[in-house]
Nucleic acid binder design. Structure first.
Length: 805
RNA sequence: GCGGAAGUGUCGGAAUUGGCAGACGAGCAAGACUAAGGAUCUUGUGAUGGCUACAUCGUGAGGGUUCAAGUCCCUUCUUCCGCACCA
């Protein structure tokens, strides 16, 4: 009898061995083939690790461990994205320095990750709050500033009433703050902005060259929202001014029957003397201003608006005078804040025209046939042909667009124009626990970057971390820190007191792992050249339009600056599904369905938790937790353990299991690389079931099984390797090879169908000729003949189908 | 509304190119070993009817293509996620 499987003893033992042996340190030998696996580094919150964390971490740990066994120099690093609001809020509440809070949380997280046996290279651990790290975050900011991509702007921002901080559009979810859930209002503030819009095209086009799962690419493209159209100038009757609109359908210009401007449009004030009903418009504006963006879109269904009395526009293609309306369905923040309305061919304009009884003129017909535009707008581009449009008549929509743009250029009343939904990135936070922005404001010289030699610009010690009531950062109260001299003229000047958002440190962290202690650069050229791009990056879908887009932007900028050698940071991006509670709902304290990974490690072991999280279901789909499922995986590992009892000698696979061994190696190898961890584990379960059926496993078979299982359950397999006298360490072994020829069975059971229904099965050799197989098949179904055979189908090695009539 | 994903036993989920639907796990049932079993082992387990080695039905619903459809095509319903008046 073998001794019992004691997961605690086994796991502690091997975790210590791996630490002592520095088993998973990435080598600086740049001549070896490399593999850089990356998972999103966690925010070390006070709650500790969630059971959701181990899912992606285990998945890439499996790949990393497998690749090491295949001879790659693997970099699989971990660190801490430790700036952030929860830490600061905790610090405020408990009067503990966020530095201390962070240190404690990191310790806890690290202990938890360690207990799960991940093969992270802990020598490369990084922390975004470490001055030696944020020195380079600030350095990148200075580069951006010097390149004109960081600028300060007075603008209405999303202001979280509870966090007292400005938020990026991406951080406002359903009208509330993504982090705290409080109401978000508009507030005008002077904020640092990053010109991510400058990289909009590169961010879209770069997606063609990378291997991201499709939904990530689609989301990013939609988020950037590139649209190609035209800007057209409409004369404002009786003035020298033009009202410029943006349209993607300049082909429909002859159908424009009115215009609409946004309530914030500057012309309203400019021409207030000419507008007879200015009081009405003023009232409408006030109502619109009261609504948040969220409410405005919530009320989307019902169009509202006011006609401007006293201001008309001239349609530049036919000289007709048309009315101008004000409505909040036109946004100041997109395009020009004004549109031409073509109710016959745009759903929103159609609704508006119906409500206010405005004329609808058809200028596009379906395949040349007029349609009833009084019933609904006709918006199909593919079948549209222009009518009632002078020189465009008879052209397809696309041809008409081209011709119209030619016309606009010629007459100098418009031009082609690309627009984006993407907005510039609000980069200021009025908070303490973030990277100080290394800029000085001088009354003479304006905004001046501090000298690179002064980096890092350290976060000063303050008395209180509370944001000030006027919305300024706690740093603003530190007068002796704020008051400084201008690096440019030497005169008195003030430091910027806003800090960077949490996304700053995470936008480049994968670069630092390649050379984490470098004091002269964010990483050496050699290290970057060798390790980049990240070969495989896994992370949450929720970061698709935030972190993932931001870090691609910074990386592309750094490439343009000659800092990094690749245009894209990540070659491959995958995403995992969420782990839900037993009841199928999201885990949360209030629902009482939270599972603590520590408890699972304690009761069942890290190997069981790892195996279970990989077995739980398709990696990219959400899955519900099940304690019974955990038990099943523990049972599987117990059965692997107890194979010792039926172990026999043998240096080669036994004949009866040879095929299955090779098939299992093939399947596991393939599945580990293709996010199919659940079926890989199922294959190994099947294999051991067969060992038990046979009541024997030989040493060669056992060793292969242990090697295949090692990436999933590293501790128990390493222990068993030692028990059965395997050489060296299991983690140092070579990944098993399979022989394709041996994965194919020489005899196979195939089904014989009659008219598509299975009526018998026969056993055939894989190379048996068609005639022989068909003869055998017919024999097997001899008693089922009914009529004449009209067709005989044999798919080699798969199936026979006899069609009778 | 637009975009994406998904609908398969009691449950989680399998099923390279269309080729024996339900792998693997859980649950349940019966049996074995037991003082005991919430341990372990064995067997069974889609539904319906004969109730043994047999047939029919069966992958959200309805059509279609095919010798053959969970898989391909059309129509439609439901759920989840993301975006949301982007001109």
């Amino acid at each position: 009898m073998s001794k019992l499987y004691n997961h605690k003893e086994v796991e502690q033992k091997w975790q210590k061995v791996w630490d002592d042996e520095k088993a998973f340190a990435a080598s600086n030998d740049y001549s070896k083939p490399k593999f850089y696996a990356l998972v999103e580094f966690p925010y070390p919150s006070g709650q500790g690790l969630h059971v959701g964390h181990p899912r992606p971490y285990t998945a890439l740990d499996i790949v990393a461990r497998k690749r090491r066994m295949q001879g790659y120099n693997v970099l699989y690093p971990m660190g801490w994205d430790a700036f952030g609001l929860p830490t600061e809020n905790f610090a405020i509440k408990n009067h503990i320095h966020p530095k201390i809070v962070t240190k404690n949380n990191v310790e806890k997280f690290k202990g938890q990750l360690h207990s799960l046996g991940y093969s992270f290279d802990w020598d490369r651990e990084i922390n975004t709050t470490d001055p030696n790290y944020y020195k380079w975050t600030q350095w990148i900011f200075l580069k951006l500033f010097k390149a004109g991509l960081a600028y300060k702007k007075e603008m209405p921002i999303n202001w979280c009433t509870s966090c007292k901080v400005g938020l990026a559009n991406e951080e406002v979810v359903n009208g509330v703050c993504e982090r705290c859930g409080s109401e978000v209002v508009r507030k005008v503030k002077s904020e640092w902005m990053l010109k991510i819009t400058e990289y909009a095209d590169k961010l879209i086009d770069g997606l063609d060259g990378v291997d991201y799962i499709e939904r990530v690419k689609v989301s990013q493209k939609n988020w950037i929202g590139r649209s190609t159209g035209a800007e057209v100038d409409f004369n404002v009757a009786g003035t020298d001014d033009v009202l410029t609109v943006y349209t993607t359908r300049c082909d429909t210009l002859f159908g424009a029957t009115y215009m609409v401007v946004s309530p914030e449009h500057p012309y309203l004030d400019k021409y207030k003397d000419r507008i007879k009903n200015f009081a009405d418009i003023e009232k409408y504006r006030e109502e619109a201003a009261k609504k948040s963006d969220f409410e405005r879109s919530e009320l989307a269904k019902d169009k509202t608006g006011v006609e401007i009395d006293g201001l008309k526009a001239i349609n530049p293609v036919n000289g007709k005078e048309i009315p101008i309306w004000v409505s909040d369905y036109v946004l100041m923040s997109y395009g020009t804040g004004a549109i031409m309305a073509v109710p016959a061919h745009d759903d929103r304009d159609w609704e508006f025209a119906k409500k206010f009884d405005l004329p609808i003129i058809q200028v596009v017909a379906k395949d040349g046939e007029e349609v009833d535009v009084n019933a609904a707008a006709f918006t199909d581009v593919a079948t549209g042909v222009l009518i009632n449009s002078d020189f465009l008549n008879g052209l397809s929509v696309n041809d008409a667009k081209a011709k119209m743009i030619e016309f606009l250029n010629e007459k100098k009343i418009g031009h082609a124009k690309v627009n984006y939904k993407l907005r510039d990135w609000v980069f200021s936070r009025q908070r303490y626990w973030g990277e100080p922005i290394p800029i000085v404001e001088c009354p003479k010289c304006g905004f001046v970057p501090i000298d690179e030699s002064e980096l890092p610009l350290l976060l000063p010690e303050v008395e209180s971390y509370e944001p000030t009531d006027n919305g300024e950062s706690p740093l603003a109260a530190m007068t002796d820190w704020v008051n400084t001299t201008c690096p440019c003229c030497g005169g008195p000047a003030k430091r910027e007191t806003d800090t960077m958002p949490q996304w700053a440190g995470s936008s480049w962290y994968f670069l630092r792992y390649t050379d984490p202690t470098n004091e002269n650069a964010l990483a050496s050229k050699e290290a970057l050249k060798y390790w980049l791009p990240v070969d495989w990056y896994n992370g949450g879908m929720e970061h698709t339009t935030l972190h993932l887009l931001y870090s691609r932007f910074w990386h592309k900028f750094l490439y343009d600056q000659g800092v990094v050698p690749t245009t894209e940071p990540y070659q491959k991006r995958t995403s995992h599904g969420m782990i839900l509670g037993e009841n199928g709902e999201k885990m949360s304290k209030s629902r009482g369905n939270v599972v603590n990974p520590d408890d699972i490690v304690e009761d069942y072991g890290a190997d069981t938790l790892r195996t279970y999280e990989m077995f739980i279901g398709a990696f990219d789909l959400a899955a519900s937790w099940s304690e019974d499922g955990v038990k099943g995986c523990r049972r599987f590992l117990e059965r692997v353990w107890k194979l010792q009892e039926i172990l026999v000698d043998g240096d080669e696979y036994s004949d009866d299991l040879k095929g299955e061994m090779h098939r299992t190696i093939k399947k596991v190898s393939f599945d580990f690389e293709n996010l199919k961890y659940n079926t890989a584990i199922a294959a190994m379960m099947s294999l051991i079931n067969d060992f038990y059926k046979k009541n024997a496993v030989n040493k060669a078979e056992y060793k292969t099984l242990l090697t295949l299982l090692n990436p999933v359950a590293p501790h128990i397999t390493e222990e068993l390797w030692q028990i059965i006298g395997g050489e060296g360490r299991l983690y140092q072994q070579t990944w098993p090879e399979f022989d394709e020829a041996l994965t194919v069975e020489s005899t196979v059971e195939i089904a014989v169908q009659v008219n598509g229904k299975v009526r018998a099965t026969i056993s055939i050799g894989k190379d048996d000729p068609k005639d022989a197989v068909l003869a055998k098949a017919k024999e097997a179904i001899a008693d089922k003949f009914s009529g004449n055979i009209v067709k005989e189908i044999y798919v080699p090695g798969k199936i026979v189908n006899i069609v009778m009539k």
